[in-house]
């Protein structure tokens, strides 16, 4: 899912870099002292988890944990995703440095979507956790496909979505298991966000 350098236009990549650095500043600056250790652990987890992969239809997809980051950190997931992707790019060559901004926006969008989904309380927690994990992969994959189309690569990339649906399903199950584990072991790990309820 990481976009390498030279695939998207330089203008698009540079604009995305500027936006991602701005988001890093805005959401990182407001982080409270007690949030930082959790952000550090989550960034390390995101960084390493991209190495855990499974084969799907002749290719290989890896975990992302963007949905889990969104659940646990909300908008603080943006600087966490930025840090994890930066080191993935530098150490594993997953995605390029110039296209880092695009990758950060794509994957942070998945985390932020998961954050909003997590706040819809009438839905059971396990199902919400599953859906958060699912959108944490599907949203970045969709954005990537749109960016490829905008850059003139056609719509072929949309066919890859079926692979990402499988990956998103696996991620959803993993997220549900992790949230269930946190609920059982120490519910204080799960943040208490303002609830989004349906208007009656």
């Amino acid at each position: 899912m990481h976009i390498a350098d030279g695939i998207l236009s330089t203008e698009m990549a540079a604009a995305a870099d500027a936006v991602s650095v701005g988001a890093l500043y805005v959401f990182g600056k407001r982080a409270r002292t007690e949030e930082i250790p959790k952000m550090g652990i989550m960034a390390a987890a995101l960084f390493v988890v991209s190495l855990i992969h499974f084969p799907v239809a002749g290719t290989s997809v890896h975990l992302g944990l963007f949905g889990l980051a969104g659940i646990l950190l909300g908008f603080r997931a943006v600087p966490v995703v930025f840090t994890a992707l930066l080191f993935q790019s530098l150490l594993f060559q997953h995605g390029g440095l110039l296209s880092l901004g695009v990758n950060v926006i794509n994957m942070s969008a998945g985390a932020v979507a998961a954050y909003f989904l997590w706040r819809i309380r009438p839905v059971p927690e396990a199902l919400r956790a599953f859906l958060c994990g699912f959108v944490g992969i599907i949203v970045p994959a969709l954005l990537m496909a749109v960016e490829f189309e905008l850059s003139g690569y056609g719509r072929g990339i949309y066919y890859l979505m079926s692979i990402y649906v499988i990956a998103a399903g696996a991620e959803g199950i993993l997220s549900a298991m992790i949230i269930g584990f946190f609920r059982k072991v120490d519910p204080r790990i799960l943040p208490k966000y303002p609830v989004i309820k349906e208007k009656k």
Partner: peptide, 10 residues
């Protein structure tokens, strides 16, 4: 190295 750097920054 990456995990150490992330923890160090945090």
């Amino acid at each position: 190295v990456g995990v150490s750097l992330v923890f160090g920054i945090a």
